[in-house]
């Protein structure tokens, strides 16, 4: 990892009485858009709350932008934004008033707060509705307001906890589009979601949690691009597989279908040679489409 990590953890653990929420969590996450994925109850929100300094870990340490998440809480909070999963909006004031207030809470002077709030509400698509009381907003408009309060002070890093929760397909698309644009604004993003497709679309690094432990952490391209080739053989499948293994490939056989992976050579070339050497034909050949869901299910043993 070339860049200094924006988030790191060493042997991080937290237990609520006898219930272990996080255990032995270790990671170094680079600048950019990071996806925090895991099933409900995997420990995502607990991890975010530790990074925000809301919860104190029972074990280990965590750092945010180089600051200790437990000891340097105000330094961390001066540099981050947070969009919670649950409701966080006062219903009796307008979006503009609340976002101005949120900017003031981050330390921006009054005039700058007003200017920033206006700009950011326009950015999230609420320029027309910003003077309406929040209680009349749709779920999508509330999610946009939540995002606006999280970025109004131009944080170095923003935590988005389930940002697409409760949104209809159109609202989901628009929210994912907004999240994708944040990286271009120079804001690092950590998106927590149990919807793996959302992470695939918006992030370039993935941290997977399962049962309070780290399942995988790495660049998205490495996780879902495993250089695996799928071939459906016509003829002697076992003979083709033997040729591939002899050439150094790893092979999974499922009826006439072979999954072929190699770390040292071009898998397509090995398949071509094995088919020629064994005299078999093929019905189909192509890269195996690996999704984040496949990686998660494989890692969690489901």
């Amino acid at each position: 990892m070339v860049d200094a990590p924006i988030l790191s953890a060493r042997d991080l653990g937290l237990a609520y009485g006898s219930i272990v929420a996080l255990h032995g969590v270790e990671f170094d996450l680079p600048p950019g858009r990071i996806g925090l994925v895991g099933a409900n109850g995997a420990g995502k929100t607990t991890l975010i709350k530790i990074l925000l300094g809301i919860l104190r870990p029972t074990l280990g340490t965590a750092a945010v932008l180089g600051f200790d998440a437990t000891k340097d809480v105000l330094d961390v909070r001066s540099r981050i934004g947070y969009m919670p999963e649950n409701d966080c909006l006062p219903l009796d004031i307008s979006a503009a008033e609340f976002v101005v207030y949120a900017a003031g809470l981050a330390g921006l002077p009054r005039n700058a707060a007003r200017q920033r709030a206006s700009d950011v509400l326009t950015l999230v698509g609420l320029e027309e509705e910003r003077f309406r009381p929040i209680e009349g907003f749709s779920t999508g408009m509330k999610q946009r307001t939540k995002l606006a309060q999280a970025i109004v002070h131009d944080p170095e890093l923003v935590f988005l906890d389930e940002p697409t929760a409760g949104l209809d397909p159109e609202g989901r698309e628009e929210m994912l589009e907004l999240i994708s644009r944040l990286g271009g604004f120079g804001i690092n993003v950590l998106v927590s979601s149990h919807v793996l497709g959302d992470i695939e679309r918006t992030c370039d690094w993935v941290l997977m949690l399962d049962g309070g432990r780290v399942l995988r952490s790495g660049p998205l391209s490495h996780l879902i691009d495993a250089d695996t080739v799928a071939v459906e053989v016509i003829g002697d499948t076992d003979a083709v597989a033997r040729h591939l293994v002899a050439a150094g490939a790893t092979v999974d056989v499922a009826g006439p279908r072979l999954l072929v992976w190699t770390s040292t050579d071009d898998a397509f070339r090995l398949v071509r040679d094995a088919l020629a050497d064994s005299g078999a034909g093929m019905r189909s050949l192509g890269p195996k489409a690996t999704t984040l869901e496949d990686v998660f299910l494989e890692g969690s043993g489901s």
């Binding site: 105000l74 947070y82 909006l89 219903l91 981050a106 330390g107």
Partner: peptide, 12 residues
């Protein structure tokens, strides 16, 4: 209304 979570993300 859950606004405390916003305060918890600010230097306060």
């Amino acid at each position: 209304e859950g606004v405390l979570s916003v305060y918890s993300s600010r230097p306060l």
